[in-house]
């Protein structure tokens, strides 16, 4: 079997992998992306609920985050500030208190069409992207790395592992990488792995009529926080974060509706659409918080030819989309400087 050699293979079509692939392809390198899932985007996922895309995964970009804003601008995507001014609610359980938060607190910025539109826009520019293709093994040769996948075997000068380090399955072999190093990689906590998100779509943003911003914080749950993610096209929506708990799905649903009514009144009991997604993920090893964003994750392996690239490995804004993009820029620069 004659296999063509490419410059870079990127494993994972989330924001980090697709950004790295795009930066490298723009620099004139031959790049291929493989993705285990049947869709691109990774933890950015903006499915339609009642006809409008809403973020079930990563949601916000913050105004202090430069990498992601630069990328968004370059791709011609648009952002908007979520919600409308109004009071926040503090849910203490037995009582709910209104509070006026300072206006300058954390401006929540959303992407028009959802954050998955970043991945979609990036993927459109890429020459080679294969879905439902999983990594099995990376072995080291003098001139190249040989990558076995559930599809074809790929020869590449550089390999970028663009998925959460904690997702590196024990069955995946990385030749020459020390066992101790692999253990650290697999112990890295995965961002969002402890929460579920629930989105409620309504006919109108009725909470605004009551002078509420839609923001709430709860001591009792099940939703720890609630935020407004109404879209510029007028579709009104609130979403909540639900930390991992022992509750069954049906118990959780009943409790969440009770909480919505407690906070926002009877109208909250009848949304036009509801969608829940749990990002709960059991990784093979117990995550160790100290490895989140740890410098060791940024150390190249296999003689500078294998790199980790996900928001968990970023030194800045770790866990955010900005971390994913910033780290992708860093990895792309490293690879470019070594191929020059």
């Amino acid at each position: 079997m004659k296999v063509e050699m490419i410059d870079v293979l990127v494993v994972g079509a989330g924001v980090s992998g697709l950004s790295a692939a795009w930066f490298l392809q723009k620099a004139g390198l031959s790049v291929q992306v493989i993705e285990a899932a049947p869709r691109i985007g990774g933890r950015t996922w903006s499915p339609e609920i009642a006809g409008t895309p809403f973020d079930m995964g990563a949601t916000w970009v913050w105004d202090h985050e430069t990498s992601v804003h630069q990328l968004i601008e370059g791709l011609g995507l648009e952002t908007f500030v979520a919600g409308a001014p109004g009071d926040a609610l503090f849910d203490a359980g037995p009582f709910v208190e209104r509070m006026t938060l300072p206006a300058s607190w954390a401006v929540e910025r959303l992407l028009v069409g959802g954050t998955q539109s970043i991945a979609n826009a990036l993927a459109k520019n890429l020459e080679s992207l294969s879905l439902e293709t999983s990594l099995k093994r990376v072995s080291v040769h003098p001139e190249h790395l040989e990558v076995s996948t559930t599809g074809a075997t790929i020869l590449a000068k550089h390999v970028v592992l663009a998925f959460p380090p904690g997702h590196l399955h024990s069955s995946i072999e990385l030749e020459t990488v020390a066992a101790e190093h692999l253990k650290i990689i697999r112990s890295t906590p995965t961002w969002m792995a402890d929460i579920a998100k629930i989105v409620f779509v309504f006919d109108e943003p009725f909470w605004r009529d009551a002078g509420l911003s839609g923001r709430a914080f709860s001591r009792v749950g099940p939703m720890q926080e609630v935020h407004d993610i109404s879209q510029p096209d007028g579709s009104a929506a609130l979403f909540g974060f639900i930390p991992r708990s022992g509750m069954s799905d049906s118990e959780m649903e009943t409790e969440v509706i009770n909480q919505m009514v407690r906070l926002f009144g009877e109208k909250a009991a009848t949304p036009r659409g509801v969608k829940v997604h749990a990002w709960w993920n059991e990784s093979g090893m117990t995550p160790d918080p100290k490895y989140f964003g740890h410098p060791i994750l940024r150390e190249p392996m296999m003689d500078g030819r294998l790199h980790l690239c996900s928001t968990e490995t970023a030194s800045l804004n770790t866990g955010h989309i900005d971390g994913a993009v910033g780290r992708a820029r860093e990895v792309a620069d490293l690879i470019r400087s070594s191929t020059r």
């Binding site: 913050w62 202090h64 503090f90 938060l101 607190w105 954390a106 001591r219 926080e225 804004n317």
Partner: peptide, 18 residues
Amino acid sequence: SFREFGEFAVSSAQRTGR
């Protein structure tokens, strides 16, 4: 009241990472 505002502020910082 400080505890309530403060809990909000900490959760907000957890989101922004600032």
